[in-house]
Simulated scan of single mutants.
Amino acid sequence: MEHAKAVVIGGGQSGLATAHALVRAGLKPVALEASDRTAGSWPRYYDSLTLFSPARFSAPPGMPFGGDPDRYPHRDEVVAYLTAYAARLRADIRTGLRVVAVRADGAGFTVEVEGGGQLWSRAVVAASGSFGRPHRPDLPGLEAFAGQVLHAADYRGPAPFAGQRVVVVGAGNSAVQIAAELARESRTSLATRAPVKFARQHPLGKDLHFRLTRTGLDTAPPGRLLKTPPAPPVLDDGRYRAALAVGAPDRRTMFTRLTDGRGAWADGTAERLDALILATGYRPHLPYLAGLCGALDPAGHPHHRGGAAPAHRGLAFVGLEWQRSPSSNTLRGGGRDAARAARRLAAHLARSRPPAFLVRCVST
Rank of each mutant, 00 (worst) to 15 (best):
V234R: 04
C293A: 15
G291N: 05
L217S: 15
D274G: 03
G314P: 02
T253W: 07
A295Q: 01
F317S: 02
G307K: 01
A243W: 12
V246S: 10
D236A: 09
F255N: 08
A266H: 06
P302V: 08
A279Q: 03
H202C: 02
G261N: 08
L217F: 06
H304A: 08
D274C: 11
I277A: 11
G314A: 05
Y282D: 13
G263K: 07
R283I: 01
E271G: 06
A248L: 10
Q323P: 02
Y288P: 08
P221H: 00
P203K: 06
D236I: 03
A231D: 11
D297K: 05
D236L: 12
A220Q: 10
D260F: 04
P203M: 11
T269S: 15
L217W: 13
A299Y: 01
G261L: 13
L296K: 04
D267S: 12
D274K: 11
A243K: 09
H301M: 10
L289S: 03
D237L: 07
L204V: 11
C293P: 04
G291E: 14
P298F: 10
G281K: 00
R324M: 09
G294C: 08
P229F: 09
D297S: 14
L286H: 04
P298E: 06
G281D: 00
P287N: 14
R239W: 08
D207Q: 00
L273Q: 07
H304C: 00
L235S: 07
P233D: 07
A248W: 03
G319Q: 07
A243C: 06
L217N: 04
T213M: 00
L276R: 01
L258M: 03
